[in-house]
Design a protein around this nucleic acid. Structure first.
Length: 489
RNA sequence: GCCCCCCUAGCUCAACGGGCAGAGCACCGGGCUUUUAACCCGGCGGACCGGGUUCGAGACCUGGGGGGGGCACCA
């Protein structure tokens, strides 16, 4: 404990000695700051009212003079000034002067506008609601240290308007997504986070252990397989917005736990999913044209559609490139354009690599990239007219994947074959290859109606809409290494 | 996992080619009856942690910790 906290603790003892509870149990308030501003916007400087209000919030600024003092009180709706006079407050006046930045207080009085034009509550009662033991950075300077902003998000939220803006925006975006899906008859469901087999995506899982069953479990990498079992069960429009966990690298666009929307619609295909994706994003977005990192992004209207093959042909300058090319020829294109690959990659995987290296980062306005190769899409239905690819698209925007969707594979025999291909890849050393899920196959064997499925990275969607450069800005508590770990590992 | 960069007071920032580490705000004491980052006077308070080089290290070397960015992997 430092001198600062010792001083605050002494203050608290003094308060208690004088009969003041520094942490009282409840407080009744009648107005928030925004309501007072809305009701008295027209009040002229120097004008008083008889409107009595009770407000509560945190002291953000404190201006203590000899016989009259001011405080800026903040609640979740905004700021309102407290105006205190010695004559009016009596003993309470000294107590007001003794408040510190960060203290929570309640205040009662009449609404007035001061001579200098600030709408205020002229207090005849000020109650300490919770005493702060640590100093709050003065908002003028803010909290800029990025590490502290993430570790101490409560302080970031208290003093940085931008942190509050993003937190509020995120909530509204998620709410918008829910609204759109609910309006179309989708049922929100929850499926297991602890899974005996990690499925539904190509990724490394976190492993944990359950003592009671002496069982290794995996934190889910995707809810996909469970959601499709609900489609099998006849819940024909379902969605889940929840956390996925992937034991992989962190970056400006990757956090080990992240929030995903997955939605499944019976009788639909990936064209329907494109329409749904566009509707969701356009409904959640605050405007048709937004700015991301200084560049405009056109979110309104119909989004561009291009097949992966076309995109790669253009970017690599190989107009006749096709999936039936011999692998050797495909590798030459990779070599020539400096795209690395593994010997195990087939033509489909090589085209995907070319796409990711040459095209993905260049797509700024939202673009649907269609028809992903079978080799990289083990859960997607084969294309109705092209045997090399699946009916799958990704939505790319600002050079990043925002969504991934397909006409779902509902043929249990084909699905089993795809899992077996994955098993071979895993045996060959691909740790991210999918594990065969017998429960899922059994479900498909009961019959799954044709369906479209969609996944949207909610964090990335919020990044885009909030103009945030890093995923950590849109996750309230992003993963950080713990501080002060011992030197031994 | 690899590469580059960063870490000075509670917060925001200085200074110095190695020579007693500064400011504003916060906090404490005093003054002030309409302030807006209130102001005035006085005070308290610090080099991420460890080792080395040096007469002397916050600065140079080295090990560790944490963070940022990039690459790899992925969404």
């Amino acid at each position: 404990m430092d001198d600062f906290e010792r001083g605050r603790l002494a203050k608290i003892e003094a308060l208690r000695a004088s009969g003041v509870d520094p942490y009282p149990v409840r407080f009744e308030r009648t107005h928030d700051a925004a309501a007072i501003h809305a009701a008295h916007a027209a009040l002229a400087p120097g004008e008083e009212t008889s409107a009595r209000v009770t407000v509560a919030g945190r002291i953000m600024l404190h201006r203590v003079h000899g016989g009259v003092s001011f405080g800026t009180l903040r609640d979740s709706s905004g700021d309102i000034q407290l105006f205190c006079q010695r004559d009016r407050l009596g003993d309470g006046y000294a107590a007001f002067g003794d408040l510190d930045l960060g203290d929570w207080v309640g205040a009662e009085g009449e609404v007035v506008r001061t001579k200098k034009g600030e709408l205020s509550v002229r207090c005849d009662r000020v109650v300490l609601l919770a005493k702060a033991l640590r100093p709050l950075p003065k908002e003028w300077f803010g909290l800029k240290d990025v590490e502290q902003r993430y570790r101490r998000r409560e302080v970031d939220l208290a003093v940085n308007p931008e942190a509050r803006r993003i937190a509020v925006l995120r909530s509204r975006v998620v709410q918008g997504v829910r609204e759109l899906l609910a309006s179309r008859g989708f049922l929100e469901v929850e499926t297991p986070m602890l899974q005996p087999r990690p499925g539904g995506a190509l990724a490394r899982p976190f492993v944990t252990h359950m003592n009671a069953l002496d069982l290794d479990l995996y934190l889910r990498i995707a809810p996909e397989l469970y959601l499709k079992r609900l489609i099998v069960g006849g819940l024909d429009r379902v969605f889940e917005i929840n956390r996925n966990f992937r034991n992989e690298g962190m970056s400006v666009k990757h956090n080990p736990e992240f929030t995903m929307l997955e939605a499944y619609q019976a009788y639909a295909d990936y064209h329907d999913m494109m329409e749904l994706t566009q509707a969701i994003v356009q409904h959640a977005a605050p405007a048709g044209e937004i700015s991301y990192q200084g560049r405009p992004v056109r979110l309104g209207g119909e989004w561009r559609r291009v097949t992966m093959l076309e995109a790669v042909r253009d970017a690599a300058g190989v107009p006749d490139l096709d999936y039936d090319w011999p692998v050797e020829r495909m590798r030459e294109v990779c070599d020539r354009t400096a795209v690395p690959y593994e010997p195990s990659f087939g033509a489909g995987r090589l085209v995907t690599e070319l796409f990711e290296k040459h095209v993905e980062g260049t797509l700024w306005d939202p673009t649907f990239v269609l028809d992903y190769p079978k080799e990289v899409s083990p859960l997607a239905r084969a294309h109705r007219s092209n045997p090399h690819v699946t009916e799958r698209f990704e939505l790319i925007c600002t050079g990043r994947e925002l969504a991934n969707a397909f006409s779902e594979l509902n043929d249990p025999v084909d699905q089993r074959r795809r899992f077996e291909d994955q098993a071979r890849a895993r045996a060959a050393g691909d740790e991210e290859a999918m594990v065969l899920d017998e429960d899922f196959l059994t479900a498909l064997e009961h019959g799954m109606p044709p369906a479209g499925g969609l996944g949207v990275g909610i964090d990335r969607l919020v990044m885009l809409l909030a103009d945030a450069a890093s995923i950590r800005e849109v996750i309230l508590f992003p993963l950080l290494r713990p501080e002060g770990r011992p030197a031994t590992r």
